[in-house]
Design a binder for these strands. Structure first.
Length: 603
RNA sequence: GGGGCCGUAGUUAAGCUGGUUAUAACGCCGGCCUGUCACGCCGGAGGCCGCGAGUUCGAGUCUCGUCGGCCCCGCCA
């Protein structure tokens, strides 16, 4: 099959040197002898005349084989096919007047081929290397090197490179020192599941891949480096999502002798500068700020999309004494008013009811405000006073629809919070090409783990409580607030950080509050406690999720689109087939025997 | 661990309440063509309908299981 494609022999590059890229030539190069190298994008074989669009990472240039320039080359060029790799020497010439291709940057010229070399052949690719053809994602991932040849994918990687470059540039200028921290480190409790690496030299012992360089960067502050940053891979063995991969990249920073303001202003200047330089988008600084509790109250979520205005309202008091039992008894009742929402069909409302059920909602109450009446399955249960109260609190007008959730705060806020996003889309309330950054602050320090029946650090156990809140840990741990902050853009959490605990005393108190006894905390975090004991400066930092940030800037909806070689939802790499089995010899060296091998019958 | 969507030529899809030989476009192969640009024209090849059971006279179509991909809940900052 391959033989039929071409009898043309491939040749070594020899002394040929590329003179230009495929997006570079224009009328000002007229008559110039050039040498281009690239792939065959399209071939238009007219028999006595052949056009080839030669592609490299930058663009396309039309090269033309004609008998009057080189008849031999024309003869050979009949054998060229898609994705063959060529080196072409020729002369730049102006195209005939009405033959200009305005959709090509190089569309005013063409290169008349004097000589060419076939550098490599190609099998017919499994999918067309074109932006307008969307092949199935598993196919694209299996042949990712072909997928990346598509300009849209390459463009994302180039954007990512620009972003990292600007970040490094900014931080370097601002006096940050880039330091690499270990990838083979020790497993620490809390947080996500670790990826483990067995030790050959110490059987039965394991390294863990870092979930983040958190402890190392704090130790670098103890070391007096003052300002640290790193663009670093982090690893978390948890289930994947469109915005979550098992290995992902953080822009990790830490600063000494600063408090919230110092870190946040540096971080938002960096981000604003980035958007300006890379996208030419101006973000107003300082960014808006919102308390966690206010974010939950207004938006239901701790990463609100503030590009549009719909907000939730607490109407618990209005319906407290209602004949409608569900409302009267619920711990929390909130309403979401959608102006113009009365146009929603019954089918759409049913779909929204299904939608909120995934967040634990048992149903979705609604009222359509018509000119003369309230159209609703629940209106009849509401007294005139309650109706008046709702009209007042919500500012109801004819044409509106109001959705209600009455349940636990968690269910109410999640259900209405995500419903708000859905409705924002449905009613076209979300402006495109807009970036709305916002800081979320004053997070609770701890979070109740219902399964484990204990308090856990919401951020991580090194986060400092607000002044005076350390004392709350014993009596009212749920009320203690953290000196933590998240940066949210368009409803995406792109970064988060905190002021750290920098005294041994406080850090031990914190561990104790998390149910760790002295022995245990010294065992696991002895090195940190010691470092804090030797004059640790006050410090804090922030880490950005680079993949999410680039995804946002690229306008993609999955971080896979901005990662060169991403993994599937089962954390597999379809190209290399990782993860894969290993030989018994490798296992033996590591002192490992698989449990399944003992149970499974030998075949 | 759970819910939803999907799997048919190389690719993207169509295939109705089960019924003759499984369609189309693009791609691929061969031929013709000196101004195309996603060239055009003529001809051709190409299928384990993801895999395995079951129901049925008969399964791409229905049922169950399984594998894989995507989205989500849980999990994860």
């Amino acid at each position: 099959m391959e033989e039929t494609r071409s009898k043309l022999q491939t040749q070594p590059l020899g002394w040929w040197v590329r003179s230009h890229g495929c997006n570079e030539l224009s009328l000002e190069h007229d008559d110039l002898e050039v040498c281009l190298m690239g792939w065959v994008q399209y071939r238009r074989d007219h028999g006595g005349l052949i056009f080839i669009d030669l592609r490299d990472r930058d663009g396309l240039t039309q090269v033309v084989f004609t008998p009057d320039v080189n008849a031999q080359a024309l003869e050979e060029a009949h054998a060229l096919r898609s994705e063959y790799v060529l080196a072409v020497k020729g002369v730049v010439r102006k195209r005939p007047e009405d033959m200009v291709n305005p959709s090509l940057l190089t569309g005013e010229i063409e290169v008349a081929v004097r000589d060419f070399k076939l550098l490599n052949r190609s099998r017919t690719p499994p999918f067309l290397i074109e932006d307008r053809v969307e092949a199935a994602e598993n196919l694209r991932l299996k042949h990712r090197y072909l997928d990346i040849r598509r300009p849209a994918v390459a463009k994302n990687l180039r954007l990512r490179s620009q972003v990292v470059h600007e970040i490094r540039n900014y931080l370097h200028t601002a006096g940050f020192i880039e330091v690499e921290t270990p990838v083979l480190t020790r497993s620490t409790p809390e947080g996500a599941r670790d990826f483990l690496v067995p030790s050959r030299l110490s059987h039965g012992h394991f390294y863990a891949l870092p979930q983040s360089p958190q402890l190392f960067k704090q130790l670098l502050m103890c070391a007096g480096l003052d300002r640290y940053y790193q663009v670093v891979k982090c690893f978390r063995d948890e289930d994947l999502r469109a915005d979550r991969q098992p290995e992902f990249t953080q822009v990790d920073m830490e600063m000494s002798f600063v408090e919230e303001e110092g870190i946040m202003s540096e971080a938002e200047n960096m981000i604003a500068g980035l958007f300006k330089k890379v996208l030419d988008v101006k973000l107003e600084t300082p960014f808006l700020r919102l308390n966690y509790s206010q974010a939950i109250a207004d938006y239901g979520l701790d990463r609100p999309d503030v590009r549009f205005d719909l907000t939730l309202r607490d109407v618990t008091d209005v319906v407290r004494g209602s004949r409608f039992n569900l409302f009267a008894r619920a711990e929390l009742v909130k309403a979401l008013r959608v102006p113009g929402g009365a146009e929603l069909s019954r089918k759409e409302i049913d779909d929204y009811t299904d939608f909120v059920s995934i967040y634990g909602a048992k149903g979705l109450a609604w009222i359509k405000i018509k000119d003369d009446e309230w159209q609703s399955p629940i209106a009849k249960f509401l007294s005139p006073e309650e109706q008046e109260g709702l009209t007042d609190v919500l500012g109801l007008e004819a044409g509106d629809i109001v959705f209600f959730q009455a349940a636990s705060p968690e269910v109410v806020n999640n259900a209405l919070g995500y419903l708000r996003l859905k409705l924002g889309e449905r009613f076209g309330l979300i402006p495109e090409n807009t970036f709305a950054p916002i800081w979320i602050m004053d997070f609770p320090l701890l979070e109740w783990d219902a399964d484990e029946k204990r308090w856990e650090a919401r951020h991580h156990p090194f986060t400092s409580p607000r002044d005076g809140h350390m004392e709350l840990l014993e009596k009212e741990p749920g009320l203690a607030l953290a000196r933590a902050y998240d940066m949210v853009i368009n409803g995406q959490e792109v970064g988060g950080g905190s002021i750290r605990i920098h005294t041994r005393d406080d850090q031990e108190k914190m561990f104790a509050a998390l149910g760790m006894d002295l022995q245990e905390s010294r065992n696991k975090f002895g090195f940190l406690l010691q470092a804090l004991d030797y004059g640790a400066p006050p410090h804090g930092g922030i880490a950005f999720g680079l993949d999410r940030l680039v995804m946002l800037m690229a306008g993609c909806s999955s971080i896979r689109d901005v990662i060169a070689f991403p993994k599937t939802q089962k954390a597999a790499c379809l190209m290399t087939d990782a993860p894969a089995g290993v030989s018994n010899r490798q296992l033996r060296e590591l002192g490992i025997r698989l449990r399944e091998a003992e149970n499974k019958p030998q075949d």
